[in-house]
C-alpha cells in the first residue's frame, strides 16, 4: 500500500482504536473481534461487569474513550483465561483487559478506590522492595499458622467487607511482607526501571 493510501485510511480510523492499538498491551488485536459474544458469556464475574469484553471491544471501535477507560469492568477480570481458550478468533482477551486497566490507571482514569487496583498496587510495590512477595503470608495455604492468618480472619469476621477488608489487608500486607528477598535486589530494581523507561518511550501521545 502506498504511504498516501495509508494516511487516508488512518484519517478515517477512529482515533481511540488507534490509541488502543498503539498503547495497550495486545491492543492491535481489538479489530479482529467478530462480536460473537463468547467471551462475555465466559467471565466468572460476568454479572458484575457493566460492559463485558465483547462490548468493550465494540465501544473501543465506536470511540467511547472515557466510558471504556473509566469503566470498572476490566478490573473484574480474574485472569481465568476462559475467554482466551474459547474465542474463535483467538484474541488474547485476558491481556487486553489487563492492558486496558493498566493504561487507564496510567492516565489517571481508573475508578477511584477500585479494590483490585489497590490490591495490585500493594502487591507490586511490596514485591519491588525485595524482589519477592511473601505470598505464603499474603495468600497461600499455610500462612494461617502465624499471625497473618489471624489478621485475615479478624478482618473477615467483620461483616462490613469491601473497603474495610481492603484496609485490613493493606495493613496486614505491609506488616508481613518481607523477610525473604532477592540478593541482587539492586539489579532487579535497575532492570525494572530500565524496562519501564523503554516502554514509556514507545508510548504514543493521544488526547
Amino acid at each position: 500500500m502506498s504511504e498516501t493510501n495509508k494516511a487516508m485510511i488512518e484519517q478515517y480510523r477512529n482515533s481511540f482504536l488507534s490509541e488502543v492499538e498503539a498503547n495497550v498491551e495486545e491492543g492491535e488485536w481489538v479489530k479482529m473481534c467478530m462480536q460473537c459474544g463468547v467471551c462475555s458469556g465466559s467471565c466468572p464475574l460476568g454479572k458484575h461487569w457493566a460492559h463485558p469484553p465483547q462490548e468493550i471491544f465494540m465501544m473501543i471501535r465506536a470511540g467511547k474513550r472515557d466510558e471504556v477507560l473509566t469503566s470498572d469492568s476490566m478490573w473484574m477480570c480474574t485472569s481465568c483465561y476462559n475467554c482466551v481458550v474459547r474465542c474463535p478468533r483467538q484474541l488474547p482477551i485476558t491481556h487486553i483487559m489487563h492492558g486496558l486497566a493498566t493504561y487507564a490507571k496510567k492516565l489517571g482514569l481508573a475508578p477511584k478506590n477500585q479494590p483490585t487496583a489497590r490490591f495490585a498496587e500493594i502487591f507490586w510495590n511490596n514485591m519491588m522492595k525485595k524482589g519477592r512477595v511473601n505470598e505464603l503470608k499474603l495468600g497461600l495455604s499455610l500462612y494461617f499458622k502465624d499471625g497473618f492468618g489471624a489478621g485475615i480472619k479478624e478482618s473477615l469476621r467483620n461483616k462490613d467487607l469491601g473497603m474495610k477488608m481492603m484496609k485490613a489487608k493493606r495493613m496486614a500486607a505491609s506488616e508481613f511482607f518481607g523477610g525473604h528477598g532477592v540478593k541482587d535486589i539492586g539489579g532487579v530494581q535497575k532492570m525494572i526501571q530500565k524496562a519501564q523507561e523503554i516502554e514509556d518511550a514507545r508510548m504514543k501521545k493521544f488526547d
Partner: peptide, 18 residues
C-alpha cells in the same frame, strides 16, 4: 536468586515489559 513473577495481579502496576 529467583524473583517473584508478579503473578496475574502485578499487571495493574507493572505494565507489559517490566
Amino acid at each position: 536468586d529467583w524473583n517473584c513473577c508478579s503473578a496475574s495481579i502485578g499487571y495493574a502496576s507493572g505494565s507489559e515489559l517490566p
